[in-house]
Amino acid sequence: MPEPAIHVADLRKTFTVPVREGGFLAAVRSFVRRQHREVHAVSGVSFEIAPGEVVGFLGPNGAGKTTTLKMLSGLLYPTSGEVRVLGHVPSRREAAYLRQITMVMGNRNQLQWDLPALDSYELLRAIYRLHPDDFRKTRDEFIELLDLGDLVRKPVRNLSLGERMKVETAAALLHRPQVLFLDEPTIGLDVTMQKRIRSFVAEYNRRCGATVLLTSHYMADVQALCKRVIVIHHGRILFDGELATLAADFSADKTIAVTLKEGAPERIDFAPYGEVLGSEDGKVSIRVGRGRAPDVAGRLLHDLPVADLTIEDPPIEDVIESVFAGASAEAPERTPEPAATR
């Protein structure tokens, strides 16, 4: 079995943050006696990712996704636990390690604002010590793949958000990293631009065999790129496995969509078959228990003049939502008492 590209064992990160009530008296009190509390952003996360694998890292805001990515990239020191990426300990921030990774943060800008992206690319070439011939080849391929054209010759400040994200993404990969940490790489982009970034990441993964860990609130990103997902909530992993099995594990229901033949009676009561979710253009959606789906489908085909019938898992967004909802209901109270005063 090959050495995993990313190995994480019992990783934890706790922040100590100041707390105080609002108001003047509280401000005076905090001047004399500052109170702090501990926030457990990541609470014992463990997983491994094989070389070349593309994994979606899902969770609601504040779940611990970005904190984990920052520890993996060496931006944050873990409070405890073990992390190895490509055999390196990220927190040591060795140049040999940083040369093999990248982190794309959707709302961040690493390009020179006033200058064309080509100038920033040249600076990155120098910083990463890239051989000029290899650099030019990679740069030109990216320009073509991302359809950058003349965008790289315009000052970055004149680019739209989508255009800027494209040139940013190219900048982040110019040194051809082996591990990509993508934190909301398509945030704020229109559908076309999201698609372009997704296909670029997929192509990069295919050509370079790079390992990708992706966080995104857009399920389309995850569905297009990731076979495997890790779901994190309140700093703990809730699910780690195939995206396809996520629905089976967490959704107790299936959706049956039925279209009746022309001339079928207009008023049919579907309630005996399951919960009617809606009806549109002659197509009726019914929610039924996962175990009852084949039986209900059989009855529908027997009882009614069916033109078309499909049995589907609920939309992945709904499944994820139900995972988080279930976890929130079970989660312990997460507002510990002030841990220290100083």
């Binding site: 990463y128 011939d133 650099f135 051809r176």
Partner: peptide, 19 residues
Amino acid sequence: MNATPIRLVSPLRGLVDVY
């Protein structure tokens, strides 16, 4: 673009280049 590692220039040349 492929899995072949990208070639690097020497550290000194790299540093001069950065400046």
